[in-house]
């Protein structure tokens, strides 16, 4: 079989696994809650993304059919991880009220306004 594709897939798998592990390690190791948010939203997303691309390439190479579903999963994870991060940051700010800088405009931060009845 072609050695180039095999090297590429192996590299993607190793990179993906390492980043997935590093993300979870960061989740365990970083001291502050807001710092912990950084590790999974970035490292884990790229870890899984690299693994998914590797999987798509492997399946396309070995079975001869392009597997678009794993590409879709990767795209989906990339689109949703910022939203999860934003919502978790909002929940964290709501519960523990850390000191944050002012907005610099007339309006307050959206999470600090009272909910519309």
């Amino acid at each position: 079989m072609s050695l180039g594709i095999e090297i590429l897939i192996s590299a993607l798998l190793v990179i993906g696994g390492s980043f997935g592990l590093i993300g979870s390690l960061g989740l365990l190791k970083l001291p502050e809650p807001m710092q912990r948010l950084h590790a999974p939203t970035k490292a884990t997303t790229v870890g899984v993304g690299a693994s998914l691309i590797a999987a798509a390439l492997t399946l396309a190479w070995q079975t001869g059919e392009a597997s678009w579903q794993s590409v879709m999963i990767a795209v989906f994870l990339f689109l949703t991880s910022p939203l999860s991060g934003l919502m978790l940051a909002k929940a964290h700010r709501h519960l523990s009220r850390p000191a944050v800088p002012p907005t610099g405009t007339e309006a307050p931060w959206a999470g600090d306004t009272p909910p519309k009845a």
Partner: peptide
């Protein structure tokens, strides 16, 4: 804290997705 726990579950889901896909490979 509670957001930490949600974040952890979210990360676990992502890791499980990766495991499923790798099992498929």
């Amino acid at each position: 804290t509670k957001p930490d726990r949600i974040l952890t579950i979210d990360t676990m889901v992502i890791n499980v997705i990766a495991l499923i896909v790798l099992y498929g490979v």
